[in-house]
C-alpha cells in the first residue's frame, strides 16, 4: 500500500466519498435538512395559520389550482392545507424530534456507559442489568406504554424516545470503553495520578466516539420512524403540530376513496429522510469499523 500522508479528516472524507450511494444519501440529507430548517421561509403557505386555509380548497388533487389561482403541487388535505407546505413543516418537526431525542439519549447513555465501564463492580452490574432488561423489549412497546401514561405533546414524545434509546448508547459506550480501559495508556494515566474525570473524558471518551457516531446516526433514523409510527397511531404529537406521521394518519381515512396524496407524499418524504440517514450511516459504519478495514 502506498503510504498516506493526509490528515485523518481528509482520509475520512476520501473514504466516505468512495461510495457514490453514500454521497447521494449525504446530498439528499443536506437537502432535507435545509428544507426542514428553512420551512417557514420557503413554504408557499403557513399550514398552521388557520386564516390562510380555505375549506373550499380541501382535498384538491396534486396540480389543481386554488380559488385564488395558486397551484397545489402536491394537493391539499381535508382542511384545505397545502400538502407541500405541510410536508416542509412536518419535516421540521420530525427532524427536530429525532435529533433532540438522540442528543439527550446520547448524553444520558454516554454518562451511564462510561460510569459502568469505569467503576465496574456492582455499579456496572446494576446499570447493565437495567439496560439488558430494557433492550429485551421492543422499543415501540415501551414507547407506546409511556405515551399512554404521559399523553400527547412534543416534550412527551421526546421523553419517550429518549427512554427507549439511551440503553443502546450505554451499551455501546460501555463495551468500547471497557476495551480502551484495558489499554496501556489508561493505565499510564492512572499511574500519573490524573484525575478520574480527566481519565474518563480525555482518554476513554474520545476512543468511544467512532462506534457511538455510527449508533447515533442509525438511532436518529429509528427515532424519526418511531415518532412517525406513534403519531400515526394517534399517541404521539398533537394535531396542532403535525409531524409527517400525523399527516399520513390524517390521510388514511381518505385513502379508500382514492385520495392517495394526503398520505402518500408525506410518506415519501419520511422514506427519503430515513433512507438518506441510513445510507450515510452504512458508509460511516464501514469506514469506522476497524474489522472491515482493508
Amino acid at each position: 500500500m502506498a503510504p498516506r500522508t493526509e490528515s485523518p479528516w481528509a482520509r475520512f472524507r476520501a473514504e466516505f466519498a468512495e461510495s457514490r450511494l453514500a454521497m447521494a444519501g449525504l446530498a439528499l440529507l443536506v437537502v432535507i435538512l435545509a428544507l426542514g430548517i428553512l420551512a417557514p421561509v420557503i413554504s408557499p403557505q403557513n399550514p398552521y395559520d388557520l386564516a390562510q386555509l380555505d375549506v373550499m380548497d380541501s382535498r384538491l388533487a396534486p396540480g389543481e389550482k386554488s380559488a385564488d389561482g395558486r397551484t397545489y403541487w402536491l394537493g391539499t388535505d381535508d382542511q384545505g392545507r397545502d400538502m407541500l407546505s405541510g410536508i416542509f413543516y412536518g419535516l421540521r418537526i420530525s427532524l427536530g424530534v429525532g435529533v433532540a431525542s438522540t442528543v439527550f439519549a446520547l448524553a444520558i447513555g454516554l454518562v451511564f456507559g462510561l460510569v459502568a465501564a469505569y467503576f465496574g463492580g456492582w455499579v456496572d452490574t446494576i446499570i447493565m442489568r437495567v439496560v439488558d432488561i430494557q433492550l429485551s423489549f421492543p422499543a415501540i412497546l415501551i414507547a407506546l406504554i409511556l405515551l399512554a401514561v404521559l399523553g400527547q405533546g412534543v416534550d412527551k414524545i421526546v421523553i419517550a424516545l429518549v427512554t427507549v434509546q439511551w440503553a443502546y448508547y450505554a451499551r455501546t459506550v460501555r463495551s468500547s470503553a471497557l476495551v480502551e480501559r484495558q489499554k496501556e495508556y489508561v493505565e499510564a494515566a492512572r499511574v500519573l495520578a490524573l484525575g478520574q474525570a480527566r481519565i474518563v473524558f480525555r482518554h476513554l471518551l474520545p476512543n468511544c466516539l467512532p462506534p457511538l457516531i455510527v449508533v447515533a446516526t442509525v438511532q436518529v433514523a429509528h427515532a424519526i420512524a418511531l415518532e412517525a409510527t406513534l403519531s400515526f397511531l394517534g399517541l404521539g404529537l398533537p394535531i396542532t403540530e403535525p409531524s409527517l406521521g400525523l399527516l399520513i394518519s390524517n390521510g388514511f381515512q381518505y385513502l379508500l376513496s382514492g385520495k392517495y396524496w394526503i398520505s402518500f407524499y408525506p410518506g415519501v418524504a419520511l422514506l427519503l429522510t430515513i433512507m438518506a440517514i441510513n445510507l450515510v450511516a452504512d458508509q460511516l459504519r464501514d469506514i469506522l469499523n476497524p474489522r472491515l478495514r482493508k
Binding site: 409510527t229 400515526f232 406521521g245 398520505s263 410518506g267 441510513n278 452504512d282
Partner: peptide, 24 residues
Amino acid sequence: AGSILGFSLPTFWVGLVLIMVFSV
C-alpha cells in the same frame, strides 16, 4: 439496495401503500 429500502420504509406507510395499490 432492496434491504436498505426495506429498512427505511416505515411499516405503517408501506401498509397504506399496499392498501392503496392492491385494494383501491
